[in-house]
């Protein structure tokens, strides 16, 4: 539960930042300013915010195609993120990666990833590095319910378990892999049940309750830090939008969508803050205003930034070889 007011404020700030960033990304995509595939984290903010509130700057995360929330919660810079979504030279990946590939080596963000299940395997290597360097860092590996049917899930959790790696596997169970509801892509209800198969703890929490997520993952992160090995944490949540922007999500039953909107993690949190947390409405609004200004600044930064030059397109393939540019 809420230890103190600053902690509550930080949790809410992160969630609000994600909400505001994603709402802007949604609108900018609709206006045609952001190209490509955009997978929004709207409705799932409590997961990344709660988990990452337990992490240090030198801890690591791996992320997914739906990665904006993870990156913001791990301290990613909104300006560089937004510029990347636009494909600008000032973006995190110099415009080469876009929404699905944002990484920040200085903050332990080992990248969003467009291949479902990829982060699960990559996290084992991060865990091995921590193990061999004998630090007390940890790696949090975020992934969706759908990805737990990839071979990488089985291979990676088993490897992490037998090598006792300092990893927390966080399954964001939002009920769907694209159009496929969980009930049609696996027979179990709790992904956490699968932990048994690897001999590691598996726990479930309410992914729309940021305190529950924080508390549950704190325990798992502590275990990993103390060298006690990996945990599988499952956060039950809901994707409020379509799979990607442009997907009308007609496969989602209306009643289901409405029921989950009533459990919106931000509404729940702001209500708790004013009802029970000792915050005034003005204090909450001050956070909202701060975040609005931050995101507006990020959008302006992205809009004002230049596009990458043709020459930059052939850099960064290797550390030492620059490919030839086409002379057209």
């Amino acid at each position: 539960m809420a230890d103190n007011k600053d902690m509550v404020k930080d949790l809410y700030l992160t969630m609000r930042r994600i909400r505001e960033f994603e709402t802007n990304a949604m609108n900018l995509f609709a206006e045609g300013k952001i190209p490509g595939f955009v997978h929004l984290y709207l409705g799932e903010e409590a997961v990344a915010s709660g988990v990452c509130s337990n992490l240090r700057e030198d801890d690591y995360i791996t992320s997914t195609h739906r990665g904006h929330g993870h990156i913001i919660a791990k301290g990613g810079d909104l300006k560089f993120m937004m510029a990347e979504l636009f494909g600008k030279a000032t973006g995190y990946c110099k415009g080469k990666g876009g929404s699905m590939h944002i990484a920040d080596g200085t903050r332990g963000i080992i990248g969003a990833n467009g291949i479902v299940g990829a982060g699960q395997s990559i996290s084992t290597g991060v865990g091995l590095q921590i193990l061999l360097h004998k630090t007390d860092q940890v790696c949090v590996c975020f992934f969706g319910d759908g990805s737990t049917n990839q071979a990488t899930f089985h291979e990676s959790l088993n490897l992490a378990a037998v090598w006792n790696l300092p990893i927390v596997f966080v399954c964001e169970n939002n009920g769907y892999g694209i159009s496929n509801p969980q009930s049609r892509h696996q027979k179990i209800k709790d992904v956490a049940d699968r932990a048994v198969a690897y001999g590691i703890p598996g726990v479930v929490c309410d992914g729309n309750d940021v305190f529950a997520v924080r508390e549950t993952s704190a325990e798992a992160i502590k275990r990993a830090r103390e060298g006690k090995g990996p945990t599988l944490v499952e956060c039950k949540t809901y994707r409020q939008r379509g799979h990607f922007e442009g997907d009308p999500a007609i496969y989602k039953p209306k009643e289901e969508q409405e029921a989950w909107l009533k459990k919106d993690p931000l509404d729940k949190m702001s209500k708790w803050m004013t009802d029970e947390g000792g915050f005034s409405a003005a204090e909450v609004k001050a956070i909202d205003d701060q975040v609005k200004a931050e995101v507006a600044e990020a959008v302006k930064f992205a809009e004002d930034s230049p596009y990458p030059t043709p020459e930059s397109g052939v850099e960064d393939v290797y550390s030492d070889i620059v490919e030839e540019v086409r002379d057209r």
């Binding site: 494909g87 415009g95 990458p308 397109g313 490919e323 540019v325």
Partner: peptide
């Protein structure tokens, strides 16, 4: 195509 991974940016 160029001998690089496919870039994202509409400029690239």
């Amino acid at each position: 195509a160029l001998n690089t991974p496919v870039p994202f940016s509409p400029a690239l």
